[in-house]
């Protein structure tokens, strides 16, 4: 059977959504389209040399700026969450057995790109939280042997300096590359008018109520810095473990476990079958555990 004839792969979550004419991948794609469209508008008003001032102006002074920023942030969050669920769904449904190793690794790259897009977008706030996240991420990348400092400079720029590097990567590298890689995966350029329109209406409507503020400059901040929600588990680990260990466990673990699933041979029985079952369980436990750690860290820091 050729690839084109093969039925679309579906995990247990997608199987429940499909009767409604939806898949998690479509939701993710629709959210990406909305995030990119609103991002293009925001990019016109954003100056990476004056990030905090730009964010203040977009959030408060420029007409409809708050709406575009809110829709951008919310659609990006929806994109990230639905992509995570989409991945978990396919790990649960063992879809990695039905695609080539190369395709699976390409999807791992899409996931990394999505994380890069989310994180670089957070840095563009330019407030105390973003500056701290930039410094921590730069320190984390510098742990990488040989090229760590160069990778850090190339991706994040100089901590404390302008945000040109994260700005460019947010706009181009981490948006265009996952999109292009997704084209081969989804075999379509976008999620369709209905899903995209629904996501656009949902996120723009929510942005009418949700107005994220610009944050505080680094030198005024006296509280506890949070970072993005998906960074809080790492923040908690960094309080207790050396940086190198955290980078190896989180970075290497996430990429190795996810990508490694494609190398388990897809056998249900025998040694390979046991390896696959162990890796699949480890993936689900690691992701679930990390998300719980993020939640626990949030509750601990907010004193709830």
């Amino acid at each position: 059977m050729s690839r084109a004839e093969r039925a679309p792969l579906a995990g247990p979550l997608d199987a429940r959504l499909r009767p409604m004419g939806l898949t998690l991948g479509q939701v993710a794609f629709g959210a990406l389209v909305v995030a990119v469209s609103s991002g293009v508008v925001l990019g016109l008003a954003y100056d990476p040399a004056e990030p905090l001032r730009s964010t203040e102006a977009i959030s408060g002074a420029l007409p409809f700026g708050f709406l575009f920023r809110g829709a951008h942030i919310l659609s990006a969050q929806l994109f990230f969450v639905s992509l995570l669920l989409h991945t978990a769904d396919h790990v649960l449904g063992r879809s990695y057995r039905q695609v080539s190793r190369l395709s699976w690794w390409r999807l791992v790259l899409v996931g990394l790109g999505a994380l890069g897009a989310m994180f670089s977008g957070f840095l563009l706030r330019g407030d105390a939280d973003a500056r701290a996240a930039q410094a921590i991420a730069a320190a984390g990348l510098k742990v990488v042997p040989m090229f760590g400092a160069d990778i850090s400079l190339g991706l994040l720029g100089e901590p404390g300096g302008g945000l040109q590097a994260p700005y460019v990567h947010h706009l181009v590298t981490f948006t265009l590359a996952p999109w292009l890689l997704s084209l081969a995966h989804a075999r379509r350029a976008w999620a369709g008018a209905l899903v995209t329109g629904a996501v656009a209406a949902l996120t723009t409507g929510a942005a009418l109520v949700y107005h994220p503020g610009p944050g505080l400059p680094s030198d005024l901040h006296r509280g506890v810095l949070w970072g993005p929600w998906y960074f809080m588990g790492a923040q908690e680990l960094l309080r207790h473990l050396p940086l190198g260990v955290v980078v190896l466990v989180l970075g290497g673990g996430a990429v190795g476990l996810t990508g490694g699933l494609a190398h388990t041979g897809g056998a249900s029985a025998g040694r390979r079958g046991r390896v696959e079952a162990a890796m699949r369980s480890a993936w689900l436990l690691a992701v679930g555990g990390y998300l719980l750690l993020c939640l626990a860290s949030y509750l601990a820091r907010s004193g709830k």
């Binding site: 105390a128 500056r131 410094a135 006296r222 960094l238």
Partner: peptide
């Protein structure tokens, strides 16, 4: 001001 742990700014 850069913390010697990971470079955040101390206050």
């Amino acid at each position: 001001r850069r913390c010697t742990h990971l470079g955040c700014l101390v206050s």
